[in-house]
Design a protein around this nucleic acid. Structure first.
Lengths: 222, 222
DNA sequence: CGGTTCGTTGAGATCGGTCAACTCAAGTGG
DNA sequence: CCACTTGAGTTGACCGATCTCAACGAACCG
């Protein structure tokens, strides 16, 4: 049994901001950048999937609350990542800003309509979904492993995605990590200290992890 | 730690068979039905993803062997299911026939080329990928639960997919189930007997499960 | 009939969860 | 500026679910 996590709904405090200035694809061209406060909900599980989203800055988590109160985190998204893609008309997860976050939104219906004519865009959508699929498959591989291996895999994922070889600044809480890895905060904490004692990592502050022995981490990730 | 599973490579015994006769979509029209023997490999992890596949009859499992010998099963596919869809050019899992299986194959490059012009086909591909994504997300939700919940979820999935309300004929071994659920065969076995003792299911033969109390199962699935 | 594979059951070990106490940092208000 | 609160994280002691190892039973097949 995992810890029950209360997800406090904070009033989302939305307001329109300036549109993103780097126009790389069709998607960016259509939306306006929108700020979300820490812990505010971007969309809820079961809501109609009206928009697609792209993180401009900050970090987003998608999550799902199970009937008995357990929470599973689907993924963390950082600047540049697309999220909110759904095949059906409803979001299967909810999405919340972990830190102050800016997000570009674009009407799903508009994208879908365009994709029906523009095969390049259609391909882009399909590729994004595939990338998502690949990530969830990796996630499955994490969840069958031991606590140490899960944490190691998580740190490597974070290091890789932030393109910082040896220092990871974690935007998420221990509870977020625990709910992502299917463990408890205590186990996360203990595993961090184990890894620190074996000089694989250093933890100068709770939210900053320094990877001292990357190959040892990779070995743990098996 | 999970059980190390030796995957015996059986010579695949392929031979061309008659093409499938129910032509529902573009995909069926392009391939020839091909038989695979029990436990034979349809494709291997890391091989170039040259074909897409659709199960005509029988059951297929996709799997991945980890560095230390543990095996994870990605999914089971039955008649009507599409598999082998990959975003990249390589299969991220291998696929094996669990029973005698007939499969329709179609060149990926042909489908991709067509999809570039035919937006309906492109949408079909995207939908298939999304369905896959949704399945893996469900799988993640299973893996964070207790053994009883995982087994209950597995049985419900099987019952639903075979459209048989209360009897499930399992084509796969306990080892396959264990590797799908991230448990050991012993735990699978014990959980079955627990569920049988509490009259939730009956297990007349090892491979046949009768669901006696569906609502109890669903409650376990939480 | 004997061998082989698959599944079941038992006993003990172990990993991670639960519960609880404690530390630390960051406010908040007097 | 300091007491107080609050939330996040760490650590310890204990417990229980699941794994491990091992023996046994059942079905299948030559």
């Amino acid at each position: 049994m995992l810890t029950r996590t209360a997800t406090q709904k904070v009033s989302s405090g939305r307001s329109f901001g300036a549109p993103a200035h780097e126009y790389q694809g069709v998607i960016e061209m259509m939306g306006a950048a929108m700020p979300f406060a820490r812990n505010s909900e971007i969309y809820g599980e079961g809501e109609p999937a009206e928009y697609l989203y792209k993180v401009v800055s900050g970090t987003v988590r998608t999550s799902k609350i199970l009937a008995d109160g357990r929470r599973q985190i689907g993924a963390f998204y950082i600047a540049g990542d697309l999220f909110g893609l759904e095949a059906g008309d409803e979001h299967t997860f909810s999405a919340e800003a972990i830190t102050e976050t800016k997000v570009v939104m674009v009407k799903r219906s508009a994208v879908m309509a365009m994709a029906a004519r523009d095969s390049a865009l259609a391909h882009e959508m399909w590729t994004a979904t595939s990338r998502e699929l690949r990530h969830v498959q990796k996630h499955v591989l994490l969840l069958i492993k031991s606590a140490q291996e899960r944490v190691a895999g998580f740190l490597l994922e974070m290091a890789q995605r932030h393109r910082s070889a040896d220092t990871v600044e974690l935007p998420m809480s221990r509870q977020d990590i625990a709910d992502y890895l299917g463990l408890t905060i205590e186990t996360i904490s203990r595993t961090f200290t184990q890894l620190e004692n074996s000089t694989v990592i250093a933890v100068p502050t709770a939210r900053r992890i320094e990877i001292r022995n990357p190959s040892a981490l990779k070995r743990l990730n098996s």
